[in-house]
Design a protein around this nucleic acid. Structure first.
Lengths: 345, 345
DNA sequence: TTGTAAGCGTTATCAC
DNA sequence: GTGATAACGCTTACAA
């Protein structure tokens, strides 16, 4: 008992296979009569066209591949939803792969997509510049500024602006000693650059620690290290605010600070980045920078579809402005509250 | 400038296309000489075989589809990794889709996989029973017991056992009034059933609240509701321990309890479920039941490959035993610590 | 409007 | 070992 083919449908409906193909692809030049006959046959036979054959025969597969850097980065979930919404308009379907997913067996996701003949790909997350080159199909990069140079539009959140936003918020509250817990990777660098720029613009001094990874544990370790260094320095003063370049780092820092007797935000204010689910948890209530990831996904999807449908030129890179979600992890510094003009003790 | 085909490779290597196909599929009956010639031509031409054509012509596509209920469920990341490892052994590659991803436009992921002619599918998460039926290809269900009846093996964590484990842990610590915050869905039900079974086995009374969703906010609301109800009841006593059927619910409950002046674990112990990343955060340090999801994924992948390669019979359903990860959210009850035999005040 | 026929790039079945 | 030559199920001119 084999699967029904377009041929079976044609026979049952009493038409030719071409007609079936036309009906299925919604051609307007078919009689209502035949259309119904075809649709009926399709339903009766439970026919599902083979995308393999369609892709082989046609000029496109109407599928687009999405490469996600890591499925554990919850970041991409809303991005994917925005993408889907955007490409669905063009009749495309998404195929998702994660970089780590096939890394071991040299099962490079890009290679898989190539052999699948996807019409285009979306590089989501911190993709290596190398991956983007030698990419025979139209592509857009979503959410990082790593590969500015390649011939692909980059749809990213302006992470440097986000870093400035977070830092400015703390400065506006009255903080003068604002530390930063950064980490590895281009996103972290961009956010960190924003922190430095904003401090410079305000004439404040910087205090930077780089965590080994961008995890909660690394954030805790970085905060501990920062505190330890302060303790051993002669006249050093502890920061009254910390900007962590992502939420896990921030949560780790809060845990470490609390472990050392500092209450948040009473003694130290903390700002995170990404506005991940944990940030809104009551237990945490973390002020965080939000990249509006879903919209980023939508924009990327729309741009890719435009490249696929349109002739020639490709859309310009875009850098969307992030916004700050203020919660209960930030407040004015104590000294500031007691007597606005007073210097630190 | 078109893509190179197997024909181009054959011509360049001075052999027939059949030979090229044999070499690429690792046939042992080809001379070393020709093999090298073919491989060289492949490299020079940067040839990538078309999976579309291969799937069309061959008897299988060597691809398997994974349907995830929701990408935002961090749960599936390790499961996917286990899956990948297991199916890679058989030379299969994974294609992932999320139920919500295409739900809107009747872009049912199962339909997409059908048209892609995947060799098999993995249903991960809480899949509807309906989805599993009418599934023309071999399938396994990963991580839920929802569709016991269908003709697919179910590889799941024994969630009822997990519920018992959590409850037993609290009882062993000396707790007598153990409440449960449950939620919607089959997983929650199974965990809840374990809670009830363990209490019954120990002759303890149950106190159950069902949250509207399985989110942190819902958990907080449920805990608040529970406390409010207790306050209005005449001689009711507050529970000294709470088992929440997943981690977000548990974190929400902790937040709510703290808001009402209860410290965890001093006044109330809390156990969660899933051992998600947040559970290990210092700020939370939540005792939680772990399903060893990666291993679950491996088992499911191995079973599916066995079904695909093997002839006939399919592997039995399996229910893997979960384990408890004890952290700092659980401790002996206060009264118990002061005087072991004393009743509650 | 509908039918005919020629591919699309592989695998599979034979011969050689 | 190696090479022809049919499928595979569809799209797409081109005819009718």
């Amino acid at each position: 008992m084999k699967r029904p083919t377009i041929y079976d449908v044609a026979q049952r409906a009493g038409v030719s296979k071409s007609l079936v193909s036309l009906v299925l692809r919604g051609s307007p030049r078919v009689s209502e009569e035949k259309r119904e006959a075809v649709l009926a046959a399709v339903a009766e036979l439970d026919y599902t066209p083979s995308r393999l054959a369609a892709g082989l025969a046609g000029t496109r597969t109407r599928s687009i591949g999405v490469v996600v850097d890591d499925f554990a980065n919850l970041w991409f979930a809303p991005a994917l939803e925005g993408l889907r919404a955007a490409v669905a308009a063009g009749g495309y379907s998404l195929s998702v792969a994660d970089t780590a997913l096939n890394a071991h067996l040299s099962q490079d996701p890009i290679a898989v997509f190539r052999s699948l003949r996807v019409d285009g790909v979306v590089l989501a997350g911190e993709i290596s510049a190398e991956a983007a080159r030698q990419l025979a199909v139209p592509a857009v990069v979503l959410g990082t500024r790593a590969i500015e140079a390649a011939r692909v539009p980059v749809i990213a959140s302006d992470e440097t602006a986000g870093g400035r936003l977070a830092t400015a918020h703390l400065a506006e509250l009255g903080h003068r000693r604002i530390a930063c817990i950064s980490g590895p990777g281009p996103s972290a660098s961009a956010r960190e650059a924003g922190y430095l720029a904003e401090l410079a613009a305000r004439g404040l001094g910087a205090s930077l620690v780089r965590a080994e990874q961008t995890t909660e544990a690394a954030g805790a370790a970085a905060a501990d290290a920062m505190l330890a260094e302060l303790a051993s320095a002669p006249g050093a003063e502890a920061p009254t605010a910390v900007f962590a370049v992502n939420d896990p780092l921030a949560v780790g820092a809060i845990g470490a600070l609390r472990g050392q007797g500092f209450e948040v935000p009473r003694d130290v204010s903390v700002v995170g980045y990404d506005d991940s689910p944990i940030a809104s948890y009551r237990l945490v209530s973390l002020t965080s920078v939000s990249g509006d990831v879903r919209e980023l996904g939508e924009a990327a999807g729309a741009d890719l579809v435009a490249m696929l449908e349109g002739e020639g030129e490709f859309p310009p890179s875009r850098r969307l402005a992030p916004r700050l979600v203020v919660r209960r992890s930030t407040a004015a510094p104590r000294a500031h509250r007691r007597s606005p003009g007073a210097g630190p003790v």
